[in-house]
Amino acid sequence: MSFQAFVFYVLSAILVFAGVRVITAKNPVHAALFLVLAFFTASGHWLLLQSEFLAISLVLVYVGAVMVLFLFVVMMLDIDFEQLREGFWRNLPVAGTVAAIMVAEMVLILTSPESNLNGFKEPAALAADYSNVKDLGRQIYTTYLYPFELAAVLLLLAIVAAIALTMRKRKDTKWVDPAEQVKVRRNDRVRMIQMAAEPRVEDRGGDTNNDNAAA
């Protein structure tokens, strides 16, 4: 067994273990951390395939951003995970059937002579100084410059549309201009007035009760 194959099997074993623990871990924080482990091991697979850019972006985007956000949500929201897990055994037969069908489909497609997987040659190993990132960058900024720029325009449009649909001046808004708030003086808010004292009224509580009953 070559060293690469050895690394592949070790990474795969960790990946499968982490994947199983994601759905079996009792503590949601543990499950999220196992998912981080799964992503990290999968990026090891990308490295084995000489796709270092995908490996790095998987860690940066999914581990660095998505999972951290997810952990925040899990920790901040008080979700009763026992309740969510309740239907596990009841739904197991259906889920198992779906999974079995999917596995059968994949086996059929992969082993079918129509898809002819053996016809695809193993990609030639890349030179040691070959840079994936450089190549991707060059492609994006030359051949695919036009769609790349258009994708940027699409994002700009999405921002404009989202703001146009959600932001408007509401009458009941509680927003205060901080500058106005700082500039406020005592005389703007408080008015001193002199009032004559009210004469005391007897048996007030009874009156209000009667009023309520009448209303």
């Binding site: 769609p147 994708a151 699409l154 449009l157 404009v160 549309a161 146009a164 649909l165 408007r168």
Partner: peptide, 30 residues
């Protein structure tokens, strides 16, 4: 972009650019 596209990628991005703006315009009167 749609009418000047000579590639499925740009055809599709042009279409989405148009559609996305239209969805928002239809909903503009909230």
């Amino acid at each position: 972009v749609m009418v000047s596209a000579h590639h499925f990628l740009t055809l599709y991005i042009g279409l989405e650019l148009m559609s996305l703006a239209l969805y928002a315009l239809v909903a503009l009167r909230r």
